[in-house]
């Protein structure tokens, strides 16, 4: 058995794919599915650039074997919004100047997304803890934290809008 057939839901699309078992999830996403928004910064789970949401949980895709993701539901940055229709968190990152080199941005936005799903009104400490697995070398984090605060306001507004 060299190749393994796995099936997973990536960004709401069902993907069937053949891989060798020692393929990492990050390689499956980048090399096989062309989802290069997921970045590799260290390969050892230290930097968070490869963060994706798997079965509702934040994971470092460099530390998951692709077969471990068999049957999983995965959201990458490409699944969050498009250029014509940005997610409120993506908008907030742009408006707050939270994007510099941009290499941490996809992972950071997904971490923010997951944090706000779990806790729609985090305080500053909770925001810091929510993004504690994601390194940024450019911004000094302040603007990223501001962007997440702005997202909180935006998302709660759009929620109350929906309720009406």
């Amino acid at each position: 058995m060299t190749k393994l057939k796995i099936e997973l839901m990536v960004n709401r699309k069902k993907r069937k794919i053949e891989i060798t078992p020692s393929t990492r999830l990050i390689d499956l996403l980048r090399d096989d599915l062309q989802l290069t928004g997921t970045k590799e910064g260290c390969g050892k789970g230290e930097c968070g650039a490869c963060t994706v949401i798997m079965n509702g949980e934040l994971v470092a895709s460099c530390l998951v074997l692709a077969p471990q993701a068999d049957g999983a539901v995965i959201t990458t940055i490409e699944g969050l919004g498009s250029s014509d229709h940005l997610d409120p968190i993506q908008e907030a990152f742009i408006e707050s100047g939270a994007v510099q080199c941009g290499f941490c941005t996809p992972g950071m936005i997904l971490a923010a997304r997951r944090l706000l799903e779990e806790n729609p009104h985090p305080d500053e400490e909770e925001i810091k803890r929510g993004i504690s697995g994601n390194l940024c070398r450019c911004t000094g984090y302040q603007k990223i934290i501001e962007a997440i605060k702005l997202s909180i306001a935006r998302l709660s507004k759009s929620d109350s809008g929906k309720a009406k």
Partner: peptide
């Protein structure tokens, strides 16, 4: 050109 960087070493799972 994606996919031609496929890993090739056989392995069981």
């Amino acid at each position: 050109g994606q996919k031609n960087c496929q890993r090739t070493v056989p392995c069981q799972y």
